[in-house]
């Protein structure tokens, strides 16, 4: 290939490489270096090379239960994001004029507030004598305050709130690309609204569902602040496992090994998803 390229093409390629160099150096320094260092740490013990950090996955039950809980919460958040995000994206994709930017703007609005602030906001809303419990008690719906925070529910709720845009935006983009004529064709052929939605619109929007699900799922796997603040110690997710290992035990090797395992799992999820839809579509570049 390079034999066939002309001197101009080669010069152009060198130029492009040169222009990319600053970005490549930044990515190399700030992303690749820590990853390599982390990988190296995970195999290092007091007496040099060791597999002891990885062996703990099979001996320490906290590891297993933490990973199981993390995946369960990621799964719940993803399902909830589909159920809530799909109708929002649908309405935005189908509405006209100024409505799509308004709806998408409302979806994106939370992005402008820090995750920490939003987590505390949920704490205030959901706590024992919070707004939700007070309102429900006053309305006579409940006698006893519901336990809405310091458990998985609070974690799922707040994480969902923060990650919902990652479901809505790919869904919206996919739905916008479904030609309106397909639904018109479905109707002209005798299909009622339900049938046309089920057999035409829904299947064609699936790439968006998959893209959004992968993003939300993967991001939840590594989420830290909301489970820490709203889990109340009842949720012990992988991210917290990592932080405890460093903060309390100063165990960089153990923390690194957990991160490496989580990273490998995330890569595996992307790999699986890319067998269904191309990676570029998940990341929204196509």
């Amino acid at each position: 290939m390079s034999n066939a390229s002309t001197p101009e093409e080669r010069r152009e390629r060198r130029m492009i490489l040169l222009l990319l160099a600053p970005a490549l150096i930044v990515v190399g320094l700030l992303l690749i270096t820590p990853l390599v260092w982390m990988g190296w740490q995970s195999f290092r013990g007091p007496e040099g090379f060791t597999l002891a950090h990885y062996a703990r996955f099979f001996t320490d039950t906290v590891y297993l239960s933490s990973f199981v809980q993390t995946f369960r919460i990621a799964f719940l958040v993803t399902i909830a994001a589909i159920l809530i995000g799909y109708p929002i994206a649908y309405v935005a994709a189908k509405s006209q004029g100024i409505w799509p930017p308004i709806i998408l703007g409302l979806v994106l609005l939370p992005f402008w507030t820090s995750v920490l602030v939003r987590a505390y906001a949920w704490l205030i809303l959901l706590q024992r004598r919070g707004i939700v419990n007070t309102a429900l008690t006053k309305a006579g719906v409940i006698d006893q305050p519901l336990i809405l925070v310091n458990n998985e529910f609070g974690t799922v709720m707040a994480t969902l709130h923060i990650l919902l845009p990652f479901m809505v935006l790919p869904l919206y983009a996919t739905m916008k690309k479904i030609p309106a004529e397909l639904e018109m064709a479905g109707a002209s052929l005798g299909g009622g609204g339900g049938l046309v939605f089920r057999s035409v619109f829904l299947p064609l929007s699936m790439p968006g569902v998959i893209a959004g699900s992968v993003l939300v799922f993967v991001l939840t796997l590594g989420f830290y602040i909301t489970p820490e603040l709203l889990g109340g110690g009842r949720t012990f997710l992988v991210s917290m496992l990592v932080s405890r290992n460093i903060e309390i035990y100063n165990e960089w090797g153990a923390a690194s090994s957990i991160s490496v395992v989580l990273l490998v799992m995330v890569f595996a999820i992307f790999r699986l998803a890319s067998m269904i839809i191309p990676f570029e579509r998940i990341m929204g570049t196509k």
Binding site: P179, E181, L182, M184, A185, G186, S188, L189, S199, V200
Partner: peptide, 11 residues
């Protein structure tokens, strides 16, 4: 009414 759309609109 059977309709053949401009770009066929096949599913």
């Amino acid at each position: 009414i059977g309709i053949v759309f401009q770009n066929y609109a096949l599913f």
